[in-house]
Amino acid sequence: MLIVQNLSLKTRQPILHDFSYQFAPGQFYQIAAENGSGKTSFLRAVTDLIPVSSGKVLLDGKPYAKNKRKLFFFESNEWFNVNLTSLDYLKFVKKQWHSNVDLNQELDLLGVREYVKVPIKKYSLGMKQKLIVAMYLVSGAEYYLMDEITNGLDEESRAILYKRLNDEVVQRNKCIILTSHYSSEIKVNNLHRLVLQKQMMHEVDQ
């Protein structure tokens, strides 16, 4: 369980005020908000990338810093070192997260295998996003924090991705927290929609 207690967040401007929520395994959470309202900052705060004004985040009863292997977060393709290849990153993630996921199998899901040994600097946006997806799956982490993961993916790839994420939630009991603009196309089980508006985040009916 990812427990957020009375979390307040402020960067240049107030982002979030006194937010409390429990993100449970086997559930899919979509966070929707206007651009610039702080979705990414919320994910950064959960992963200690930025300090919070007040509040607490516990991952299975421990602070994130002591339970990092349970969660995977790769914010955007800007985080890549473009001289490395997909294989470099995937092998790294598999080893670092002590994952027993079959790397070969994940390479085929969105077709990463075709360019697995090509340096990232030669990738299109879509190729980079597919690699990020593969990294999440290869990590074998229990919690996925995904920020606009479908950016640059075509319709077919988005459909494959959502189907796979649904399997991750239903069959592997994963907890997925995803920020996305395309709210209508998310067709997964156990879906919860949260809206971040005027520094308040709350769950809404689907």
Partner: peptide, 17 residues
């Protein structure tokens, strides 16, 4: 400096201290 993106230390999300 490779692990800093927009001033954030992205290596801090890796499962190492």
């Amino acid at each position: 400096t490779g692990s800093y993106k927009n001033g954030l230390d992205i290596s801090s999300v890796l499962p190492i201290n």
